[in-house]
Write a protein that binds this DNA or RNA. Structure first.
Lengths: 336, 336
DNA sequence: CTGAAAGCGCTTACAG
DNA sequence: CTGAAAGCGCTTACAG
């Protein structure tokens, strides 16, 4: 940022006006002679001139930058989504600001406002779940695409996953295995749509005739409360029913359950069956590789970026398909 | 970015000049009456005015943005480093562009140039290892801090880890356990400093009297070549020596080795001992939790950000300590 | 305590 | 094919 050359310097060096340099920079080669073009090229090359994107952004009111706000960036799910977003964006010449709300509603708001000040062209948001009103507000002024988590009563474009199907696959699988008891360890639902969808479906299924013979219970747990998980597992293990099973709501809970089970010297699937959400990188190297409901996370991210950028490029907010729901799949391994 | 209010609009609305608004925005409250201050505050609040950072950046030649270029963003090591960087930066009001070189030398260069165009204030780089000349070049024009990987013959500020100590801890530990054979599975070293440092130390140790009775060999492996790892493991298992052991150079290789060992029905530590580099989140939930050399990755990132930003804030490039080497530690678990 | 004016580095409609 | 000039939204030295 020190004594950098400006377009004016290059114009002088090349003996043309800044307008011509600008045209060159924007690839408008038709509107200049071959000679000037070559001349400019050589000057730029020689002096290593780098145009200022920020001046350009100011002028054209476009920063070619998008903000990605994740509720919790450091869980494996987010990482994969991010990968997908990054991939598509870099294909299209967009740069992303990756922001971590750290599961804080307040921080989510703060970050979004900061990004607004940075004049990003749009937002991809995986919301903490408690900022519906605020996000609807900014969606009025900026293009926004939601990933993973929906917002009620809004038509903000969203890419998510079939969560009901996920729970259904898991429960049906467990049922086929003759489970008599299924505990669903879900992170606290709050206003977070996927969690609610899964819990709702789980409860709904527990009311269906096919599953009437199964004891199905949903238990909200936080990964932070290791002792709660431990206590649960102790009681769970003691309970007399056999063919017990656990469904875990995300990779972090799976990890914790496996860890605590280990401490308690419980074996999976010997002591209970288990199916987790999210196919984490370590799921298949366990002594007993974990059966999981795999989400197409990369695709979710990629698709969200695509939605946003296509909205950015052509001004039409056609939104033929504002809600995109991707299917999930059950990967059967040895814990069931 | 649509019909946003500008400072001019607010000035008119508040009945003052843009200069005064600007002063207000920059917190120069001493130089205005309490009345104007309050007035401006209320106008801004009322209209939800958000100043444009990009106009500001252009004017003051500072973007409060730094670029973080990682050789491979999606390995656990990078993730943790990133966490540390992000933490410090957000404390100081800096935003980061996180860029993934995808282990491509070419891409690393391209990305750095793109960021230069974005007018970032500085760089934190975890280099692919093949751009020494190029990076020295940009370090001439921008503040740069290197993380994890050093660059030869330069005094670019760097934060890294004591890799020789890491290898030493591992080998000594294995020696105490009476290992007769130690294979070090390192990712291909190239010009990547930590890898070279470990390999060098490993070779050096193999020449020391204390370890003369141990067969020590270093084998470069790529995570992508699963079959190579498999073939190695087959031969390794067949070899007659007992008390064999493996040191793996990073979390991804550890994962692969464990996976392949599983496929081959080899048990760790029964068939061979193992110590890995990097304390990944899954290391302790394995049937036999993995012994590892843990790196203070978060701290490496945090420290690098601190170095860069302190350089950015005070113009002094005092550089009392251009090279910062953090200690590593051995976490003994059940694979040894 | 406050404003007029210049300037940061670009782009673009207009004129030639 | 090319340039002069205005303007994007700020900041700041200068003057009052």
């Amino acid at each position: 940022m020190k004594n950098k050359l400006s377009i004016k310097d290059i114009a002088e060096l090349a003996g043309v006006s800044t307008a011509t340099i600008s045209r060159y920079l924007n690839g408008k080669y038709q509107s200049m002679s071959v000679d000037t073009r070559k001349n400019i090229a050589s000057i730029i090359e020689k002096f290593g001139y780098q145009p200022s994107n920020i001046a350009r952004s100011l002028r054209i009111s476009e920063s070619k930058t998008i903000a990605v706000i994740m509720a919790d960036i450091f869980n494996p799910y987010s990482m994969d989504v991010l990968k997908g977003i990054e991939e598509f964006c870099s294909e299209k010449g967009y740069t992303i600001f990756i922001c971590d709300a750290k599961n804080s509603t307040q921080r989510e708001r703060t970050i979004i406002e900061e990004m607004t000040v940075k004049r990003v062209d749009g937002f991809i948001i995986n919301t903490t779940g408690e900022n519906d009103y605020f996000i609807k507000g900014i969606a009025l002024e900026y293009p926004v695409v939601l990933v993973g988590r929906k917002i009620k009563n809004s038509n903000i474009p969203t890419v998510s996953v079939d969560n009901a199907q996920g729970i259904r696959l898991a429960v049906e699988h467990l049922n086929e295995l003759k489970c008599k008891k299924i505990i669903f360890l879900s992170p606290p639902a709050g206003h977070i749509s996927p969690r609610n969808e899964r819990i709702t479906e789980f409860k709904k299924m527990s009311g269906e005739d096919n599953f009437a013979h199964i004891e199905m219970k949903c238990l909200p747990v936080s990964v932070l409360e290791e002792n709660v998980i431990k206590q649960f597992l102790i009681n769970f293990h003691r309970s007399d029913s056999d063919m017990k099973s656990i469904i875990t709501g995300n990779g972090q809970i799976s990890l914790k359950v496996i860890q605590v089970a280990k401490e308690l010297k419980l074996s999976i699937p010997e002591d209970f069956l288990m199916v987790g959400f999210d196919d984490t990188d370590w799921a298949h190297i366990l002594r007993k590789p974990l059966t999981v409901v795999a989400q197409p996370t990369y695709k979710v991210g990629y698709s969200a970026a695509k939605k946003l950028i296509s909205q950015l490029m052509k001004e039409n907010d056609a939104d033929e398909n504002y809600l995109e729901i991707l299917p999930v799949s059950l990967i059967k391994r040895e814990t069931t």
